[in-house]
């Protein structure tokens, strides 16, 4: 897994497959729908050109959309967090810290990675769930679903850092 292109390609395929074949099928209740493909956007190299991050995020969003018949919804939320990503990283990083290229848990430390995951997943899920219902009716119901799903996604993403995607 030396070649980054192959590495990210495998990560893309794995995350889309896990999302559409497993997480979209488990259906705990109407309230918990985790979306862990956000991890792909999070783990793109920090020095990657911004157009590449935006386009790849659009690509993974639209792939999820095609499989779950929600055209446009996931791509919107993905591009949204991809655009905010540099700002999020700036906010949670101290000046003195030397950031490695690859923002995995092992490289960045548990606290940094946890706040990074929380902010990215939280924004992504809020945008996603409000776009999905496309209304502000039942505002708190949607809010609750977004928060509960975020908690679950954050848990799975952090857990995944201990098992796979370590390098």
């Amino acid at each position: 897994m030396q070649n980054p292109v192959i590495k990210y390609f495998l990560m893309f395929v794995t995350l889309v497959a896990v999302q559409v074949l497993f997480l979209n099928q488990i259906q705990f209740s109407g309230y918990i729908n985790p979306y862990i493909y956000v991890l792909f956007i999070m783990l793109l190299p920090l020095n990657a050109p911004r157009y590449a991050v935006l386009l790849l995020s659009f690509l993974i969003g639209i792939s999820i959309d095609i499989f779950s018949n929600t055209l446009g919804i996931h791509s919107f939320a993905s591009v949204f967090i991809a655009y905010l990503r540099p700002a999020v990283i700036r906010v949670i990083t101290n000046r003195e810290e030397d950031m490695s290229e690859y923002p995995g848990l092992a490289q960045t430390g548990i606290l940094w990675f946890l706040s990074y995951t929380t902010i990215m997943v939280g924004i992504h899920h809020l945008v996603l769930f409000y776009i999905e219902v496309f209304t502000l009716n039942n505002f708190f119901d949607t809010f609750l679903r977004a928060i509960l799903s975020s908690l679950f996604s954050i848990f799975v993403i952090v857990l995944s850092q201990f098992i796979v995607f370590r390098d």
């Binding site: 386009l55 659009f58 969003g61 055209l71 446009g72 791509s75 919107f76 949204f80 776009i131 496309f134």
Partner: peptide, 11 residues
């Protein structure tokens, strides 16, 4: 541009 494409898809 990408967000507009997404919105066009949704709408």
């Amino acid at each position: 541009l990408l967000e507009v494409i997404s919105v066009v898809f949704i709408v």
